[in-house]
Design a protein around this nucleic acid. Structure first.
Length: 128
DNA sequence: TTGTTGACCTCTT
DNA sequence: CAAGAGGCCAACA
């Protein structure tokens, strides 16, 4: 029967095999394709998905990045300024910088150096 | 149930 | 030039 009120938090975590992928899944998919030593911005991902206004959601999606498998390299995603705005969301505020440092990504003052040069644009690399 | 906040970006005043 | 508000989708109270 008819369970009309199935609007519950069913999509809290997209189940494997679910065709109806949410904004989150798309974000995760793109971020996971980011090569090592490269970085991208929330806006770039949002724009790649088609909505540059949803940049905020990209950040929210990253909130569950560590809870999703495979894990999403959220440390490779920064804001338009190349600043590690989401560093506080990691296990430790310095973890993001550490991870980037391991990938030869120089970070100074919570900001990625040569951000433009290391910038990885999904719309270009993925060549949609 | 509604309302507010959130790892942002862009446009307008 | 600088500051403010708007707007998207989703989760939390």
């Amino acid at each position: 029967m008819p369970n009309k009120k199935k609007s519950e938090k069913l999509k809290t975590v997209l189940p494997s095999g679910g065709k109806d992928i949410s904004f989150f899944e798309q974000v995760y998919d793109v971020v996971r394709q980011i090569p090592r030593g490269r970085v991208t911005s929330y806006g770039a991902i949002a724009a790649y998905l088609g909505t540059r206004m949803s940049a905020r959601m990209v950040g929210w999606a990253m909130n569950g990045a560590g809870a999703v498998k495979p894990k999403v390299p959220a440390h490779r995603v920064v804001n338009r300024n190349g600043m590690l705005s989401g560093k506080a969301a990691f296990a430790t505020p310095t973890l993001m910088e550490e991870l980037l440092a391991k990938e030869k990504t120089k970070v100074k003052d919570d900001t990625i150096l040569d951000f433009e040069k290391k910038f990885w644009d999904p719309a270009v690399e993925l060549a949609l």
